[in-house]
Design a protein around this nucleic acid. Sequence first.
RNA 1: GGGCGUGUAGAUCAGUUGGAAGAUCGCUACCUUGGCAUGGUAGAGGCCCCGAGUUCAAAUCUCGGCACGUCCA
Length: 949
Amino acid sequence: MSLPAIDLPVFHENGFQRKKCRITGLWFWTTDSDRETCGDTFEDEYTFIGEPLIPSFPQRGKALKDAMRESFLTFFESYQHQRVEPYPVLARWRDDIHLTIASIADFQPHVTSGQSEPPANPLTISQPCIRLTDVDAVGRSGRHLTTFEMMAHHVFNRPDDGQVIYWTDQCVRYCHELFTHKLGIDGNQITYVENPWCGGGNAGNALEVIVGGLELATLVFMDLEEHPQGEIELKGDRYSTMPLQIIDTGYGLERFCWAAAGTPTIYEAIYPESVQWLKELSNFPRVLEHWPDLQLDLILSELSRLNGIMNIEIGTDAEVLQSMILEKLAERGVHLTSKQYVSITEPLSRIYAIPDHMHAISHMLGDGLVPSNAKAGYLARMLARRVLRMRDDLGLTVSLRELGVHHLECNLAGEVQKQTHDGILHILDLEETRYEEMMRKGSQVMLTMLRELSKDATIIPDEILFQLNDSHGIPPDIAITLASKLGWSHVQLRTGFNAEMAERHAKLAKQASLQESSTKRLDLDGIQSTEPLFYDDVYCVEFNSKVLKSIVLESGFHSTASHCIILESTLFYPEGGGQESDRGHLTQSGSRIEVLDVQKQGEIILHFTNGPVDEHQEISGAISWERRKQLMDHHTSVHIVGGAARILLGPHIFQAGANKSEEMARLDITHYGRLSREQLDEIEDLANRAMKEIDETQKTILSRKDADATHGFDLYQGGAPKGDVIRVLKIGEHDTQACGGTHHDYPGQIGLIRIVRSTAVQDGVERLHIVAGEAARKHLRQQEKLLSQTSDIFGIQSSELPKTADRFFKEWKEQKKRIEQLEAEIVRLRTSGGGDATSSIDGVRCVVMETDGDLKQMTTMLKELTLDSTTPTLAILASSNGGPKLMVALTENSIASERYNAVEILKVMTPHIKGGGGGKPTFAQAGGADATGLPNALKAGKLFLGLGE
RNA sequence: GGGCGUGUAGAUCAGUUGGAAGAUCGCUACCUUGGCAUGGUAGAGGCCCCGAGUUCAAAUCUCGGCACGUCCA
C-alpha cells in the first residue's frame, strides 16, 4: 500500500484542483486550470527574477532577512504558536550528526520519538542550518547555500491520547494564508505537490510548495516509522503508523528573500554588501570593460534560470557542462564565447561563495567550535580553506581575519552566540597561518615527488595527485597550478580525475563502515530494570536487595568473571560516562563472592562476579569505599578542572571525552593550541581554589525539556545522554553539566587536584591528565622517588639534577667526539710508519690489521686510511669487539678501486668467521658468529691478494 | 571514527637496493675592500624523535610510543 492522496477541504475552498504532472508524474494542486506541470520541472523556469513575487520588501541583505523572518514568526505567533529561540548549529545533543541540518533536527531523536516533551507545542522557529553536501555548487548554481535558515512551524500530536493540535488541513491553511495574505503572493502562482518524504527511519505524506519555479517550503506530515511488517511501502522500505503525528515544515528564509528581491542570484539578495565589496577588491568590473556590450545582469539571470531547471549530475565534466550551457544560453538569445563565460563565472562563483562560507564559519565558530583535523572541527577547517583558496584565486590580498571582520559586521551584527569576536578572529588567524604553512610544505613535497618527472610531461601520475591531496592537503587543481609555476609548464588535470578521486574516497569510506563492532550482549528478555541506589547517597557503602538472576557465563565472555548477577536494586555504579565501575562483594547466607566488574545493558545493571548466588533470595552487598572515594575524587575533579579551563581559556572549551579510573583521570578539552605548563598551573590553581571555596555541589534531576530550557546545550559536555531524565550537576557558578556519575556532595573532600601534564589527542583537542585526592599524593610520592633515585646515581641533591644532567650530556658528546679524533690519530700512527701491517703491491698500499674497535671506530679508521686519494690504499680491518667483524675499504677513484673489489675480497674471508656481509665495491663490511676464525680470515684475505705471510 | 603522510645540522630539506651522515642558507675564522654590499677559502655544528624487534649490519625494514600534518565519514 502506498500513501493516500492529500485531498483537503482547504484546497477545494480555495479553488484548487488536483492534477498529474505531465513531466514528473506527481500529483499536484493548482488554481490554474491550464497548468500541466507541477512547477518544479525543467519546463518551469523562475518567474521572479526581475519581477519579485513577494511585494513590499524593499530591503536587501541582513535587513531583508530580519524583516522576512520577523514577518514569518509573528504570523505564526498570531496563531498561538510559541516562538522558540534557534538551537546551535552544532548539534551537541545528538551523536549521529555534527551539524544542525534542519529545524526538526532540534527535536530529534528525543521529542520525535515521544520520549521527551517539545519546548512548546505548537511552536515556530527560524533555525540556522548548515549542509555541506552541495558545497561545490555554492556560488555556481545561483541558488545553493551551505548556510541557510529554515523557518518552521512544528506540531507534535498524540492522537491516541486525544492530543491533536492540528493536522494536514490546518497546516496547509496556515501556509496558504501566509503566502497569499501575509506575503501577498498571487495564489495562481502556487502549486502544492504531493511527494511523500522519508528519512532517518521516519516517513510521511508531504507537500512541496512551489512558487514561480522555486520550492519555497515543504510541509511534512510525519506519522510513520520504519517497521519490517509495516503495511505502507515507500521507496523500498516498509513503514507503519506511529503514536506521534508530527508536522515538520521547512520554509527557506533565503529563498523567500530571493523571491522578494528578484535579483539575478540568491547571493545578491542576501549578501549584497559582501558581493559588492569582493567585486571591488577583485577588480571584477574591469573584466567587463573588455566587452562593453555584455549585459551582466541578463547573463546571470539566464544562468540562474538555466541552473534552476537543469539537474546537473555530480561529476559531470566541466568542459561538457560548459558547452551545454553556452548552447542553451544561445537558444535564449544570450551569445557568449567560452572565454567570456569563464572570465565572468569563475570569479563570480567565488565572490558569491565566500560570503556564504564565511557565514557558515562564523556560525560554527560562534557556537564555540574549534577547527580540527577530525569531526565537526574539520568541517570548519575545510570551509576556511575553501575561502582561502577562492581568495587566492581571486587575487585578493585581504586576510581571513579581515573577511571575518567584514562578515561579522555586515551580515551578523551582534548575533554571534557564544564565542567572542576576538576569539573568532584569533581562530581565523590561526587557520590562515596553518593554510600558508600547508601550501609552503606542499610545494616542497611536490618538488620532491616530481623530481623524476620530465619537464615536458603533460600529466602528473594519478598516485602522486592522490597522495598530494590525501596526505598533504594539496587539491589536484592547486597541484597543477603549483607544478606550472615550478617549471612543469605543460601539465594539465586529466578529465574526470576529480570524480575518480571522489569515487575512491567513497569506496574507502564504505569499506570502513563495513567493519562492525561486535559487543557481547546477554539475553535479558523479561528482566526488570535495576533500581540504582548510588545516586541517593553517594557515601552509602552497604545495601540489601533481592537476586533476580544469576547467570553462568560462557568462557571467554568476560576476561575475569565467571558469573553475572542481576539484582532488584544496587549500590554498585556500573561503568559509564567515562567512570569505571565500583567493586566490592555480595554476601548471601554467609558465603561471599567478589564483584569484579559492573556494566549496564539498557536499564539493567550487570554484576560480574567470581561465583553464583541463589536466585529470588535476599542478598547483601558492600562496595569498596576506598575505590568509590577515589573515583568520585577524580570524577568531581574533572568537572572542576573543565570549568576552570573554560573560565581561563574561553567559551570554546568543551569536553570531548573523559576517563576516570582509580589511578588517574583524563579530560579531553577542545582548544585551538597546545597548553604550556604555566597555563596548566593556572588552571590547576583555579581548580583547587574552586574546590575549597564551593561548599556544596547541587544535584538536580530534570526532564530534558526543562534541562534544555534552564541550562542550554553546553549541558551535554559528556556527550548526548539518552532518555528524558537528565541529571544535572552544578558546582557553584563554576561548572554545570549533565552527568550520570557519582560525585562528592562537598568538593572540599577531594583534598588536592593536580594536573600532571597535557598531551594532544588530535588537532584541536588537548588531553589533561589529572590526579586527585589520595591518587595525587601517591603520584607525588612516585615522582619524588624517581627524582631521588636519579639524583642518587649522580650523588647530588635533586635540585641540582637539571644542571648536572645537562653537564653530563654535554660532556658525553664532547668525549664521543674526542674519542673519534683519538682513534683516527692512533690509526694514523699505526699505519704511517709501515711495519707488519703495511705492504705494497704495484703502487697500492695494503693495510691488513686486527684492531679492538667497534663498528663505528673501525669505519673511522678506514676513513683515515683510504680517503687520501694521493695514496691508493686497500685496507682490511678485523675486530672481535661485540662479535667478529671484518671490513674492507679501497680508495675511491684510484688504481686500488680499479684493480680490486672490496665485496669479493670480503667473500673470501667471511666463511672463516661463519658470517655474512656485503657492501659497495669500495667499502664492504661483514660480521659472524665465530671470533676464533678471525686470524684465518685475515690469512685467507692475504692469500687472495697474493700477499705472503 | 577510518585512511594516508612526516619527524635527519640553528633554519629549509635531500639521503637510490639496508652497507662511509649530505646540500643550501645561516654561524665562526681568514682572504679580498678605506668601509660596506659582494666574492673566495676553511671550520664548527647530528642521541638521524623515543623504545623494542629482524639482521653480520638499521637514518633506511617490522612493531609500539611520542610529536606533527592531511583527507574522508
